[in-house]
Design a protein around this nucleic acid. Structure first.
Lengths: 332, 332
DNA sequence: CTGAAAGCGCTTACAG
DNA sequence: CTGAAAGCGCTTACAG
């Protein structure tokens, strides 16, 4: 059995309260006593029991990232690795622990999230995606759980860090318009996500803003390479095939490019392609992918920083918009 | 404040002990009582406090993955995302929570790990890499902490899941020998890692086993794309440049390929390249990368499964070797 | 089948 | 500057 606070107290000849105070760096304790206690702690190899501590203090110094997908799916997309990188860095800096919660269906997601926070395993949550009808947000609001969104809520004014996805899609689409493309299609992720709705909206606005009366062509698929291939195949079977694709994710764009190459289309000569995210691999693809750099790392870092600030200083919830940038490479 | 077990007890008109028993699904409780209690739980939206529970039960149903790098670095390599995917899946299946622990230096690593386990935040650990002089392993052994290694320990017989890295390197190198390459260089990751030593060993054995008296050429770099470029640049500056590269990681291989393309070398005509891992991106590179598929996902999944088995059934520690396979594509 | 009591290992007013 | 006591919210022998 590990040493407890009593063992330390006994060895140092003080009361447990005193030991507790030196753990907490309480200034009231005299330097001699503190030194004596610290000596006992190292001699016993003492580590405070975090459960007892959390139970007494009502805080855990732990936050969780929730991902509304099966673990299988989630980390297949570099977006989440990059997001995690940012979150983990902020946690490291602020001495917080990070917990991961993945759930494949929306009921479980709500249940898991509430369980972690109400069960006092974590102090707060980062939600990695937001659905249009977000039960989770409502449930968390109702239960007064501290959380920050990666993305935005359609209905509630809550802490969030997001990109201006409408504007991103406008930029991407306009770029294609300016390149003189005639049939620009948009391959969207699942339409129940706010991010999908925003990007579709931006795509539409850009087309309408062009004076050329360009047709709107939106198809939906999953955020996977396979999804990209499949969507491209569908688009190619149309009477008139698109000459440009805006894909809502680099991983989708990758699938599109594969399909095109396999079927002998030249990129960008026959079909131009633009993605979203600027995943680390995207610069290295052949041809290198034109994409919207949404700064996923910053999204993660800032969300964690914001949550921890809220937790520690009850600072008010912020609405942060991370700037995005069109990175033009070889596919357009 | 959230409802506690007392609130539920009061509402259901039973004692807290009884509520605790229905939470635990204790068979002794009558069906009526159980139903009554469950009713009260949902009415109060009750969630048990995990800290109190862990404190009383001495277990948390949580495991941690430790990564001995800064968060910055870790998730830049797809290996960890893939590993995490496997681990998270197993956790999901077995209803365990997953905690992440990253630490950039070896002292912190030991401290963090002991803190998590001795502090009862987690029941056990998965170590994602093993150093030749592994203080962590010794410390964990001394403290009787349950853990499993991804990789192998040079000195201790402990629970582990690993690839036969020596054999992998033999296969990869032999493949190049059979392709008639004359100057086969090996780009290793940091030499303080067991996995690096094993792969270097395999490379050497394969060269010696060839009857052609091939020169040994080993350089060391970090597990990054930049590391690959830099190492390739060094090799290219030699009197006689290599005509084949075995890179200890696909990410390194990617850097090598970039360097070669930028400097006008044909792959594989001038220089053949082989990687390790079969990261998801590797099949999509141009040219597609020949690599050793080490089944990273399985490594992760099995490590978590093994750890949880040890935790739940005190099953003895296993030594599992995940088979690897040479995937020949276009770079060789 | 159920309850009262002690215990898990901390923290924190309250006294002195 | 330090200690005794109560409390955080559970679980689990021990009785009955």
């Amino acid at each position: 059995m590990s040493a407890t606070i009593r063992d330390v107290a006994t060895l140092a000849n003080v009361s447990p309260s005193t030991v507790s105070r030196v753990i907490a760096n309480n200034q009231a304790i005299s330097l001699e006593t503190a030194a004596k206690v610290r000596g006992a702690m190292v001699r016993l190899n003492y580590v405070p029991n975090a459960n007892a501590r959390s139970l007494a203090k009502h805080r855990t110094k732990t936050i969780a990232l929730t991902i509304a997908r099966s673990a299988e799916e989630a980390f297949a997309n570099p977006f989440f690795a990059e997001l995690l990188r940012g979150i983990a860095s902020a946690c490291q800096q602020r001495d917080y622990k990070l917990m991961l919660s993945m759930s494949s269906n929306s009921d479980w997601e709500v249940k898991d999230a509430l369980q972690m926070v109400k069960g006092k395993q974590v102090d707060g949550l980062i939600l990695s995606s937001v659905r249009a009808d977000d039960f989770l947000v409502e449930a968390l609001l109702a239960e007064q759980v501290p959380f920050v969104l990666i993305g935005r809520s359609l209905k509630h004014h809550v802490a969030m860090v997001n990109n201006d996805n409408i504007d991103c899609a406008i930029q991407g689409t306009r770029h294609l318009v300016e390149r003189g493309r005639q049939r620009i299609a948009f391959i969207s992720g699942p339409r129940d996500l706010v991010v999908s709705l925003d990007r579709i909206e931006g795509y539409r606005r850009a087309l309408r803003a062009s004076s050329r009366n360009l047709p709107e062509l939106v198809v939906e698929t999953s955020f996977t390479t396979a999804g990209g291939r499949e969507a491209m195949a569908r688009l190619a079977s149309l009477a008139e095939m698109p000459d440009a694709i805006v894909a809502a994710d680099d991983v989708i764009a990758l699938g599109v490019i594969h399909w095109l190459k396999e079927h002998g289309f030249a990129i960008p000569a026959d079909v131009a392609v633009i993605g979203f995210n600027d995943d680390p691999m995207s610069a290295f693809m052949q041809p290198a992918l034109t994409t919207l750099r949404i700064s996923t790392y910053a999204l993660g870092f800032e969300s964690a920083r914001m949550l921890i600030d809220m937790l520690e200083n009850q600072s008010p919830s912020e609405q942060l918009v991370i700037p995005a940038e069109l990175i033009v490479r070889q596919t357009t």
